[in-house]
Nucleic acid binder design. Structure first.
Lengths: 157, 157
DNA sequence: GCTGTTTTGGTCAGATAAGGTCAAACGCAT
DNA sequence: ATGCGTTTGACCTTATCTGACCAAAACAGC
């Protein structure tokens, strides 16, 4: 306990605790200056401590007026569907495994029927192409991305 | 949301929202003065945010009494959203065209922000693979499938 | 009707202002 | 001395903004 990364981490969590929302917006450059470190240090902190598995979502924008926005998710990461998605979806996944995952998420009550239908439209109701392995890889990516978004931003929220 | 371009964009959309028609007329120089920027900044905003793909048509005239007129293309909701999806999404589609379509559907009010975010997660926030053409084909299929579902089964319905 | 001047807007290359990536160096505990 | 988490720096990508120069439309005086 005492590394620069730890300090940056606590600083950001402090901002989250004190702010009115579960969200903070900072600038990489400004943060790096405040802590007198290389800007890429900030990326290191984000990628090791503010991951989805730990209950955070990070959103960024480049260019003039760029920013880094950190959202804190309210669920317990362990029990949530998020954890399951990370466990079940690897680099590649076949249709059946994907369908099973969606069914389980619906069962758990973390995914509603409409969301499930969207996911099915996006990843199952698709013809096969001539590149089955690439297809499994793309399916995994799309599935993970869309489920992550749905779970981190539930409907009506 | 903090860049000058963003402010100019919202200002113009505000004028469109408050005006009696789906059309607004401004002067480039006057706008540039209001926002204290180079006149060409206005062209930048127009060319990045008020494109046909996003549902706007811009008409200009030079010389004394010159103007910049922005029309917001207004389609009938519901049915035409579906129509647009069929028009815009062919056998294959690149990222930019897909993004523009989604932005336009949001603008039209037939797709809410969360659905849009899901679609973006599914089709844009994806790394490139080594098979770009196949990727464009899969993107088109996924995009069409998911948008059709979302439009035919709107949230809260 | 011409012609030149003024008033607009258009274009495009380059500057500026973010943030991202990755490999190598560092440093401490085992 | 090796391994892992940390830290840095060089280089890249994206988004925005400006300025110099160009083009068209209107207008004024002939």
């Amino acid at each position: 306990m005492g590394s620069l990364s730890d300090y940056i981490e606590s600083y950001l969590k402090l901002l989250l605790d004190n702010g009115p929302h579960d969200c903070v917006e900072v600038q990489r450059r400004e943060l790096a200056e405040r802590f007198r470190c290389a800007p890429s240090q900030i990326n290191y902190v984000l990628s090791t401590r503010f991951t989805v598995e730990r209950g955070y979502v990070v959103e960024t924008r480049r260019g003039g007026g760029g920013y880094i926005r950190i959202y804190r998710l309210d669920e317990e990461p362990e029990t949530s569907g998020i954890h399951m998605v990370y466990e079940s979806v690897g680099d590649a996944i076949d249709r059946k495994a994907a369908e099973d995952l969606v069914a389980r998420l619906v069962d758990m009550g973390v995914l509603d029927e409409r969301d499930a239908a969207c996911v099915r439209a996006a990843v199952f109701d698709q013809e096969d192409t001539e590149a089955p392995e690439l297809e499994r890889i793309i399916r995994a990516r799309v599935l993970r991305a869309i489920l992550m978004l749905m779970l981190t931003q539930p409907p009506t929220a």
